[in-house]
Computed example of a mutant assay.
Amino acid sequence: MPSKAAKPPRPEPRDRKATRRIAIVAFPGVTLLDISGPAQVFAELEAIELPGPDYSLSYLSTSGGLVPTDVGMMIDTAPIASVAPAEVDTLVIPGGPGIWKIRNDAELMDWIAKALPKARRIASVCLGAFALAWTGILDGKRAATHWRYCPRLQDSFPNIRVEPNAIFVKDGHVWSSAGVSAGIDLALAMIEEDFGHTIALDVARRLVVFLKRPGGQSQFSTVLAAQASDVEGRFSALHAWIIENITDDLKVETLAEKAGMTPRTFARTYVSRTGMTPASGVEALRVETARLLLESRQIGGVVEVAKRAGFGDDERMRRAFLRHLGVSPTEYRNRFSGS
């Protein structure tokens, strides 16, 4: 009697797709954009044909239900007990003023601790880095957080290598980002890692955002710091003119004439408004110009960048970079160019 042929395996339904669960933790006082920014980036993938497993988003809190954000809007969440730590592909810890209280939430911190070794990828946004630091997973790693809290993170956890200039940092499978909107950059970088540059670019275009600010790009610049000090904007036009003429001989007399002052009055007023001497202001603008050229890699060598930024020679630029940024131009390019 002939044997029956083995039945072929039953095909999966056409609309059934494997997914990677992204678990985003919420807590009272969480910053809304720390959650909604990355979530919107991930959600955009629903409209795109993907070469691999899709994402599924879970918003989790200790007890579930509505959780108030820092702006008063509520986020509907599921209880953490509804998701086993082993089911999490990517764990995202956002920040916000409520972050300091979750350290005393034993149930939530225990769930996070159990999820950390099982997740393929772990991430924090803004002050969420402190939650990761409390677990010890950032020890010996590079990390980013909001620039205002970088000194506190470094002082509290000396084993962490805090990078105050970074928009986001990836160290192994642990990611961390700077404040608020930087979570969008982090999420786009994750999509690029999983699905490639073309799909990440598609998402960025749908959201009308850049792909990408390089992960190490400065959160803010010395120029912005000067502008913040010059609250009346008295020298805004002068700064714009300096940038347009960055390779000129920008001595005090030239700047004073452009500002319509005597050199002595100009020097005194500039210091009082910006906190910098005119020479330091020009140098800061040249560092900013060189920084952008190094990040974009549009200019081939450091010597050429030095000329384009008005330094004249690369040694002078190197000393200026060390004063303002604490790294050499070559180190800055290697770390922050995004290549």
Rank of each mutant, 00 (worst) to 15 (best):
A290N: 09
I299K: 01
M317L: 10
K258C: 06
E232M: 05
A320M: 11
E304M: 00
E232N: 04
L201Y: 04
I199Q: 02
I199V: 08
H197A: 13
E244M: 02
P214T: 11
E244F: 00
A267M: 14
R273F: 14
V327Y: 09
S296I: 06
A225Q: 15
R213P: 10
I199C: 02
F311R: 03
T254H: 09
D202E: 15
R234K: 14
F311M: 05
P329G: 08
L211W: 12
S280A: 14
T262G: 15
A200T: 08
P329T: 13
A320D: 04
L207N: 03
A259G: 14
T289M: 14
K212Y: 08
L325P: 02
A225H: 15
K307G: 06
T274C: 07
G326K: 02
A228I: 11
A240N: 12
D248Q: 03
G338H: 05
V208Y: 09
N245Y: 03
A225T: 15
G338L: 01
L294R: 00
E244H: 05
R264L: 14
T277W: 01
S221I: 03
M317N: 08
T222V: 13
R323A: 13
M261E: 15
A290Y: 04
A228T: 11
E295Q: 13
A228S: 10
V287F: 08
A290I: 08
V302S: 01
E257M: 12
N334K: 06
D313G: 06
V223E: 06
L211E: 05
G215I: 09
G281V: 14
G233N: 06
T198V: 15
S280L: 12
L325M: 11
R297C: 07
W241R: 05
V305G: 07
L238G: 01
E315N: 10
G281W: 07
T254C: 08
I246A: 04
H239K: 15
S296C: 12
A267N: 10
E193D: 12
L285V: 00
V282N: 04
E257W: 06
E295T: 14
R273N: 15
A284F: 08
L293R: 03
D313I: 05
R205V: 09
